[in-house]
Design a protein around this nucleic acid. Structure first.
Length: 147
RNA sequence: UCAGAUGGCCGGAUGGCCGCUGUCCUUCGGGGCAGAGGAAAGUCCGGGCUCCACGGAAAUACGGUGCCGGUUAACGGCCGGCGGGGGCGACCCCAGGGAAAGUGCCACAGAGAACAGACCGCCCGGCCAAGGCUUCGGCCUCCCGGGUAAGGGUGAAACGGUGCGGUAAGAGCGCACCGCGCGACCGGUAACGGAAGCGGCACGGCAAACCCCACCGGGAGCAAGACCAAAUAGGGGCGGCAUUGUCGGUUCGCCGGCAAGACCCGUUUCCGGGUUGCCGCCCGGGUUGGUUGCACGAGGCGUCCGGUAACGGGCGUCCCAGAUGAAUGGCCAUCGCCCGCAAGGGUACAGAACCCGGCUUACAGGCCAUCUGACAUU
């Protein structure tokens, strides 16, 4: 099966900030942020490991594991028009490799599942973007009350 | 063998699958080669390079350095020596210039602490008011006046220490030795070392207190700086058109010259301030993206020569990361090492960001060389 590994990288600070305003899912070994750009362009991906996790060596190792996981999984299930940001945490290094891959797959489906409502509202245009940002808090509150 | 001192080095290995950055080749399928550190770290010093400022030099202020000599592009680094301190020793540590230029500080305790000082004590003299003793002559205590730095006590430190002489008791008052100060002269490039002789002996400590002296330092940094290309709003300049008045020409369509208009505000005039159309070209600045700076260098390795050494020179040889939300890796297996009876777990500190020379700090485990002290053996 031909694997596409050359997914475009996010390189600008404003892209990362925009993705941080999108859907977010925290798995055991990583945190995934996704933003639906509402166009049909190629998907893009970026990586972030904050100083909270550790020094430069630890952060580099975490980012490389995330890159390796992304190059294995994203070409299969990434969707057009999406920006993804993988955020490393302390457990990114200690998590077993198959578990880390499962974490990423699960996070991708979670983030895409939320998109299903969004695609219906996409006909109404920019209101969907405003909803993902401002009303995210109230939505999550409803979720917890249901569960 | 044990304990220790100094200097230096390594700091995982091999294989498989899949990737990343650079570069070269390509039959465009792909393939070859290279790819983190000793500290890449802290950003504490010193340079190269770049821009800015500046006529040269010096001075003031501020900051830094501070025994002497050498080394270097330079240094607060390094090497060699000197002085002081520590260790049986190998060796280690030290901001280590100036206190008769000046100012300041030296707490507490203590009688007295910087041209010091009699609390107790010791000694001499006086006195009989008081007390005691008396052989009735006086004597002692108290008191008064003085001498004394030997003893006690205080302190971090008390006009140097020990001994003998000396004295009323004492005192460098005298003497010997030690210490201290000055020191002709000798050795050394120098720091400094030695030292005849002289001086009875004080001229205290702190300059990581101010200060003085000598030397060094313009500022900012590769997000420096240079170049290219886009799109957007606004600025400046030039030209043309449009608008108004007037003069001249006219084929009555217009053309040319000159001048400025219109609106708003300060109550009006004068005067002052502000705003204002369209198009093209040029200039300069900001933003974004790209290229460059950017990796051949105070370069690595080997060898020879000079030098105790730091280091310098000659010759040969090699090309050895170049990213920019930032490559140099992810996963798996086997082995090594450490912990554990085993299952199993762990495998240091840490990631280039313009480049060099240092310093400092972090570091599992291990190796090598030289030297020192014990013990044992021959």
């Amino acid at each position: 099966m031909p694997r596409r590994t050359d997914i475009a990288r996010l390189r600008k600070r404003r892209d990362f900030l925009a993705a941080a305003g999108g859907r977010k899912w925290a798995a055991n070994g990583l945190v995934l942020q996704a933003l639906d750009r509402a166009d049909e362009a190629e998907p893009r991906v970026g990586f972030t490991v904050t100083r909270k996790v550790g020094g430069a060596v630890i952060r580099n190792r975490a980012r490389r594991r995330l890159k390796a996981a992304a190059s294995e999984i994203l070409p299969v299930i990434a969707k057009q028009g999406y920006d993804y940001v993988l955020v490393g945490r302390a457990s990114t290094l200690t998590r077993a490799w198959p578990d880390l891959l499962d974490d990423l797959r699960a996070a991708m489906t979670k983030v895409h599942g939320a998109k299903l409502h969004g695609s219906q509202r996409a006909a109404r245009g920019p209101s969907s973007q405003r909803g993902s940002g401002n009303q995210a808090g109230s939505e999550s509150k409803e979720d917890t009350s249901h569960g």
